[in-house]
């Protein structure tokens, strides 16, 4: 039974990530062979912790480094619509964030306040 469960979970997790839409910049970093996230499994599992830690440091203490900044996630993992040269929101269906979050039914609350595309003028 346990073995079956493991097989099932592995299938589930790998199927979640199987068609992940990495985003333009992230895809080209990956293609170039450079390593951005030291461990993919860690960033997959605990990115909410990283973001939470970072948000407290930034908002409450004024520490404004790039590491684990949500702006950074968005600008690297966003995709552009080639037809009109506009960005897709990262929380839009089929885009980087919602791809997994929808699959596993975990609601995504960052973007009720945060901007979903890189800052204006960066196109």
């Amino acid at each position: 039974m346990n073995r079956l469960l493991i097989v099932f979970l592995t299938l589930l997790v790998s199927s979640v990530f199987a068609h992940t839409n990495l985003g333009e910049q992230a895809s080209s970093i990956k293609a170039s062979g450079k390593v951005f996230h030291e461990s993919i499994s860690i960033i997959r599992k605990i990115h909410p912790e990283f973001l939470r830690h970072k948000r407290d440091k930034t908002l409450r203490q004024g520490v404004r480094t790039d590491e684990y900044s949500l702006k950074g996630c968005v600008s690297c993992h966003v995709n552009k619509d080639k037809t009109n040269n506009q960005y897709y929101s990262v929380d839009k269906k089929g885009q980087f964030c919602s791809d997994c979050h929808e699959q596993v039914s975990v609601s995504l609350d960052c973007f009720s306040c945060h901007r979903t595309i890189p800052k204006e003028g960066s196109l």
């Binding site: 702006k71 306040c113 945060h114 901007r115 979903t116 595309i117 800052k119």
Partner: peptide, 16 residues
């Protein structure tokens, strides 16, 4: 009201 297209440095959202 629900907002979109906020400034990158200034997250703003409904209910806050």
């Amino acid at each position: 009201e629900a907002l979109r297209n906020q400034k990158e440095h200034m997250p703003r959202g409904k209910g806050t």
